[in-house]
């Protein structure tokens, strides 16, 4: 019982830390300029990524962008990558309005939960 209690306490502490991390990232994403967002998105392509795992976290970044960035800014990011050609299409498509609609439609909040369910990886 003591071990279970300790394990649950650790889990809850990490949940709180995770919420703080998500909020911190959200504030930074919301405050970023278009140029900063475009530059950061570039880090999710092979030449600048430190590992495949970093690139694989791009979906989670996109979810946060659609949560906390104004549509006009997102449209500018999309246009910047659309102009780069087909190699960058996955990033441009991630900021297309249809994709934003899909993400918003699937927002799911468990009963009694403080925030929408978060996929970590």
């Amino acid at each position: 019982m003591a071990e279970l209690r300790a394990a649950w306490k650790l889990r809850s502490s990490l949940a709180e830390a995770m919420e703080q991390a998500i909020d911190y990232a959200a504030r930074e994403i919301a405050a970023a300029t278009v140029d900063e967002l475009v530059d950061f998105c570039g880090s999710f392509y092979p030449g600048r990524a430190d590992s495949p795992e970093w690139i694989a976290s791009f979906d989670r970044f996109v979810e946060q962008v659609w949560e906390c960035v104004v549509p006009q800014t997102i449209a500018q990011v999309e246009a910047a990558f659309r102009a780069r050609g087909p190699v960058w299409a996955p990033i441009a498509n991630a900021f297309a309005p249809e994709h934003g609609d899909q993400l918003r439609a699937r927002d799911w909040r468990p009963s009694g939960a403080r925030r929408a369910a978060v996929v970590l990886r």
């Binding site: 092979p46 690139i55 299409a89 991630a94």
Partner: peptide, 12 residues
């Protein structure tokens, strides 16, 4: 499978 992670998932 890790190599497949090299490119962001394309919603299209």
């Amino acid at each position: 499978l890790r190599a497949n992670m090299l490119f962001p998932r394309d919603p299209a």
